[in-house]
Amino acid sequence: MVLNNIEKLLEKYENGETTLKEEQVLKNYFSSDTIAPHLEVYKPLFAYFLGNRQEQFTKDVPLKTKRNFNYKWISVAAVAVLMLGFYFSTSPTKSELGTYEDPQLAFNEFSKSMELISQKFNKGTSTVGYLNEVNKGTSTLGYLNEIENTTSIIFKN
């Protein structure tokens, strides 16, 4: 009767359905000397659990962490300082600013640059003209939805 009860408890234990009291019964049974021969394979498992219960953690747990200085940020700061130094050390001269003494010459240069911008803009807008055709095609797709609605009405009845 006891052996039958132990086998049922083992089956429940393998399915993960045992309570703590039932597990304690199994541990007591497998720690004893009288174990059925066909249940000997479970003895090391429960012996491990009993041995595991007596283990203790003996190392100290540090409550305060050391603050490590991150040296990577020093190199980032050094590169930033160098870049700023190069940027501000090469100041542009008066001739590099693009200013003109003669107003007529400045107007002519401005007109040339605006004409160039206009040509490039017109060239770009001419290549986008095909999008109107796409809009026409998508508007005709609306008719397909109407056809689908009518066919669904016809075939549902």
Rank of each mutant, 00 (worst) to 15 (best):
V2K: 14
N4Y: 10
I6E: 06
I6S: 06
E7W: 05
K8A: 13
L9K: 02
L10M: 03
L10I: 00
E11S: 15
K12R: 15
Y13W: 02
Y13V: 01
E17D: 08
T18G: 06
T19L: 06
E22N: 04
E23Q: 05
Q24W: 04
K27S: 04
D33C: 00
I35Y: 02
H38A: 00
H38E: 03
V41F: 02
P44F: 01
L45T: 13
A47I: 05
Y48V: 10
F49V: 09
G51H: 08
D60Q: 14
V61S: 07
V61E: 09
I74P: 00
V76T: 15
V76M: 09
V81R: 01
L84G: 00
G85E: 00
G85V: 01
F86R: 06
F86Q: 05
F86C: 11
S91P: 03
S91K: 14
G98L: 06
G98Q: 04
Y100P: 04
E101K: 12
L105T: 15
N108F: 08
F110R: 15
F110Y: 14
S113F: 06
M114S: 11
M114V: 12
M114I: 13
K120E: 13
N122V: 12
T127E: 14
V128C: 04
V128W: 07
Y130E: 06
Y130S: 09
V134E: 12
K136D: 15
G137A: 08
L141H: 05
Y143L: 09
E146L: 11
E148A: 11
N149F: 06
I154H: 03
